[in-house]
Design a protein around this nucleic acid. Structure first.
Length: 649
RNA sequence: GCCGACGUAGCUCAGGGGUAGAGUACUUCCUUGGUAAGGAAGGGGUCACGGGUUCAAAUCCCGUCGUUGGCUCCA
C-alpha cells in the first residue's frame, strides 16, 4: 500500500483504504449517495469533525447523521450560526456572545445595543434564516492566528468575542465562515446551510454574559431547526401536548392542589382529591417498604440549630435557608428541617446497637422546608415545603453494596408500577478539582463511589457518570425517567454517606466486641411527593393508573327515578373498596358522561331502567367507551384485576 | 435574587381615561332525558395591592406583591 493511502475503520469493524486527505463526506459517497446526502459530520477517532475536513492518518470514522446525537448537535450549532448571520443582516451592528447547541435546538446571546427587541420580530428572523439557508452556503473552516482574530473582532467592535479570545491559545483558534458571516468557533459544522429546511425561533430571554449577574444582560434567542418540515411540525405538536399536560393546569382542573398568595409562594395546598392521590402513593410506598424491612418513624418539623451544625448542613446552607426561629425566653434557635437525616441519626443513637441489629432502615414521609430563590419556584416541581419518601439505612460497611442493590430494586419496582418504562441512572461523583466543596476523607469518598459504581453495574443499569454533581457529603445515584413525551425528569435518588455517621459519632458493637462506625444510605424513590406527582400528572396527562385515581368511578343514573338503585350499587361497590360519587344532577345522561370524561374519571357506571331490572350496571371506560353490562360483583372483579395487574411485582 | 412579560368573575379570556363584559362554572325553575354539552331566569368583580397624574384611572406613571419565560442556585 502506498503511503498516499490511509486505512479507515468504520463502526461495523470493516477497514477500507482511502487516499490520504479523504473527508467523511467522500467516505460516505463511496458507500452510498443516499448516505452522503444525509451526512452532517464525522466522528474521527472519537472527535466530531466537519464532514468535509480532510483526514490525513489512519482513523476510526463514524459518519454522523440526524439520527446521531452528535449529528443533531452539530446541526443545531450550525443553525445558531445561521441565525447569527440573519441577525447581522437584519440588525447591523449587533454584537454576538455565544451560540451553542442545547439539548433541543440552540440559542445565541445577542447584544442589540440600545435597540428594543421584541419577540414579534422572531418571525422576521425566521424568514431571513430560511432565505439564507436556501443559498446552501458552505461552512468553511479557517485556522487563524490569535493576532489576526483579535484584529478582526477589534475592527468589528465585538467585545464579547474579544473576551472569549482572551482565554484561547494561539495556534488553536479557528473561524468558521458561511455566506457573509464569520464567527470565532471551534466547530464542527454541517457541510452547508441547505440542510436546514425548517426553522422555528421559540422565545427570547435575558441572560448575563458568561452567566455572571455582574455582567451585561444579553438577549438570548432560543430556536430549533430540522432537516425536514415534517419534523418541525411534530416538534411543535409535542410542545402543544406538553402545554396540555402541564401539571399546573391539570392540577387546577382536576382539583388536586392550589397555591395561595396569603399562605406563601412555593407552599402547595393539597385539595381533597390531590390528597387522596398522595395518600395512595404513600400507602403504596409504605407497603413496599414494609416488605423490604423498613420501619416507619416520625420526627418533628423543626430541630435545634446545633443539630444542623453537627450534620454540616448549617455551615453549608445556613445562610441560604429559612433563618432560625428563636424561643422567646431561652433564646434557643431552631431551624425548619431541611433534611430528615440528622433526626434519624439521633433515633439511631438512642440506644447502643449491635452488629446483629444492622441493617436498620428508618423510613419517614418527612416534610422538609428549603428556601428556594423566588425565581426558581415552579408549580409542584420546585417548592419551598415538600414531603420526601425518605429513608436512611444504617449498615455495616460490608453490607453497603447489598443494601444499595436492594434499594435499586425497590426504585425499579416503583417506576414499573407507575408506568415509567424508560429511565437512566446518573452516577454523580465529586469534582476532583474542587475538593473544598465536599466534606469527608478521600478514603471514604473512594469507598462510597466504588460501592455505587459496582452496585449499578451489578444491576445492569444504563448509567451516565457526572463529575461534580455529588452532594457535599457523598456521591449519589439519581434516576432520570423519561415521560410519555420523551422529557427527562430526575426522580429517585440513592446516596452513600460515610460523613454523617462520623459527625454524629454513630456506633455499633461488632462481633469482635469493639466499637465500629456504620455507613448510611439515604434514599428516596419518589424524591419528593410534590415533584413526583407533578411528573406523574404530565406523564399520564392526568389519566392516572386506576389504583391511584382520586375518583375511580362515578355512578350516573339515567334519571332521578334510578337514584335509589344507584345507592344500592354504590353500597355494594363500597364493600369491594370501590369508591365514587353518584351524579344526581338534573341533567341528561350525555351531559353526565361528558362531564365525567372531562374530569378523567376512569369508570362511568350507568344505571337506568334496563340495569335496574337486571340488577346490573352499564360500564363505560374513560377514553374508550361502552364496555357492556356487568353485575356489580363482575365489575368489582374486573376492577380489582386491573389494579393487581399494575401492582404485580 | 437578577432581567423581560403578564395580573379583569371559580376557570378561559375580551375591553383600554367617562356607569364592568363574554363563554363556561355556580343558584333557581322548566324538562325525567340511554353513552361527550336540553331550555329559561338569576347571583357573582375595590379590574392584584399601595401611591401618583387627571374634573374623572380597570385603563397612563411609580412602587409592592404574585404568576410566568429565562439566568444563577438546588442538602
Amino acid at each position: 500500500m502506498s503511503d498516499q493511502q490511509i486505512n479507515i475503520t468504520l463502526p461495523d469493524g470493516s477497514v477500507r483504504s482511502y487516499e490520504k486527505g479523504v473527508s467523511g463526506l467522500q467516505i460516505a459517497l463511496s458507500i452510498s449517495e443516499g448516505l452522503a446526502r444525509n451526512v452532517l459530520a464525522a466522528k474521527v477517532n472519537g472527535e466530531v469533525w466537519d464532514a468535509n475536513r480532510p483526514i490525513h492518518e489512519d482513523a476510526t470514522v463514524q459518519l454522523l447523521t440526524w439520527n446521531d446525537k452528535d449529528g443533531k448537535s452539530t446541526f443545531w450549532h450550525s443553525s445558531a450560526h445561521l441565525m447569527a448571520e440573519a441577525l447581522e443582516a437584519l440588525y447591523p451592528g449587533v454584537k454576538l456572545g455565544i451560540g451553542p447547541s442545547i439539548e433541543t435546538g440552540f440559542y445565541y446571546d445577542v447584544d442589540f445595543g440600545d435597540r428594543e427587541f421584541d419577540g414579534a420580530e422572531l418571525e422576521k428572523i425566521e424568514a431571513k434564516m430560511a432565505e439564507l439557508a436556501k443559498q446552501k452556503n458552505e461552512y468553511i473552516r479557517k485556522d487563524i492566528s490569535k493576532t489576526d482574530a483579535v484584529a478582526y473582532f477589534t475592527e468589528k467592535g465585538d467585545e464579547y468575542k474579544l473576551d472569549l479570545l482572551e482565554r484561547l491559545e494561539d495556534g488553536n483558534i479557528t473561524f468558521y465562515e458561511q455566506g457573509n458571516f464569520v464567527d470565532l468557533c471551534r466547530g464542527p459544522h454541517i457541510p452547508n446551510t441547505g440542510f436546514i429546511k425548517a426553522v422555528k425561533l421559540l422565545n427570547i430571554a435575558g441572560a448575563y454574559w458568561r452567566g455572571d449577574e455582574k455582567n451585561k444582560m444579553l438577549t438570548r434567542i432560543y430556536g430549533v431547526t430540522f432537516p425536514k418540515a415534517k419534523e418541525l411540525a411534530e416538534y411543535l405538536h409535542m410542545l402543544e401536548e406538553a402545554k396540555r399536560r402541564d401539571h399546573r393546569k391539570l392540577g387546577r382542573e382536576l382539583e388536586l392542589f392550589t397555591f395561595s398568595e396569603k399562605v406563601g409562594m412555593g407552599l402547595p395546598l393539597w385539595l381533597p382529591k390531590g390528597t387522596l392521590l398522595r395518600e395512595r402513593l404513600v400507602n403504596f410506598m409504605k407497603r413496599a417498604q414494609d416488605k423490604s424491612g423498613y420501619q416507619q418513624v416520625v420526627t418533628p418539623h423543626i430541630g435545634h440549630k446545633a443539630l444542623y451544625e453537627t450534620s454540616g448542613h448549617y455551615e453549608k446552607y445556613g445562610k441560604d435557608s429559612f433563618q432560625p426561629i428563636a424561643t422567646p425566653n431561652e433564646g434557643e434557635e431552631f431551624l425548619l428541617k431541611p433534611m430528615n437525616c440528622p433526626h434519624h441519626c439521633e433515633i439511631y443513637k438512642h440506644k447502643p446497637r449491635s452488629y446483629k441489629d444492622l441493617p436498620i432502615r428508618y423510613a419517614e414521609f418527612g416534610t422538609v422546608y428549603r428556601y428556594e430563590q423566588s425565581g426558581e419556584l415552579h408549580g409542584l416541581t420546585r417548592v419551598r415545603g415538600f414531603t420526601q419518601d425518605d429513608a436512611h439505612i444504617f449498615c455495616r460497611p460490608e453490607q453497603v453494596k447489598e443494601e444499595f442493590i436492594k434499594v435499586i430494586d425497590l426504585v425499579l419496582y416503583v417506576f414499573r408500577a407507575l408506568g415509567f418504562e424508560d429511565y437512566t441512572a446518573q452516577i454523580s461523583l465529586r469534582d476532583p478539582e474542587k475538593a473544598e466543596k465536599y466534606i469527608g476523607s478521600d478514603d471514604a469518598w473512594n469507598k462510597a463511589e466504588s460501592a455505587i459504581i459496582e452496585a449499578a453495574a451489578e444491576k445492569g443499569l444504563d448509567t451516565v457518570t457526572e463529575l461534580g454533581e455529588a452532594a457535599f457529603y457523598g456521591p449519589k445515584l439519581d434516576f432520570m425517567v423519561k415521560d410519555a413525551l420523551g422529557r427527562k425528569w430526575q426522580l429517585g435518588t440513592i446516596q452513600v454517606d460515610y460523613q454523617l455517621p462520623d459527625r454524629f459519632e454513630l456506633e455499633y458493637i461488632g462481633s469482635d466486641n469493639q466499637k465500629h462506625r456504620p455507613v448510611m444510605i439515604h434514599r428516596a424513590p419518589f424524591g419528593s411527593l410534590e415533584r413526583f406527582v407533578a411528573v406523574l400528572i404530565e406523564h399520564c396527562a392526568g389519566n392516572f393508573p386506576l389504583w391511584l385515581s382520586p375518583e375511580q368511578m362515578t355512578i350516573l343514573p339515567i334519571s332521578e327515578k334510578f337514584t335509589e338503585y344507584a345507592e344500592q350499587v354504590k353500597s355494594i361497590l363500597e364493600d369491594h373498596d370501590i369508591m365514587g360519587a353518584i351524579d344526581n344532577r338534573d341533567e341528561k345522561i350525555g351531559r353526565k358522561i361528558r362531564d365525567a370524561e372531562v374530569k378523567k374519571i376512569p369508570f362511568m357506571l350507568i344505571v337506568g331502567e334496563k340495569e335496574m331490572a337486571e340488577g346490573k350496571l352499564s360500564v363505560r371506560k374513560h377514553g374508550e367507551g361502552d364496555l357492556g353490562s356487568f353485575t356489580p360483583e363482575e365489575f368489582a372483579t374486573y376492577f380489582k384485576g386491573i389494579i393487581s395487574e399494575s401492582l404485580a411485582q
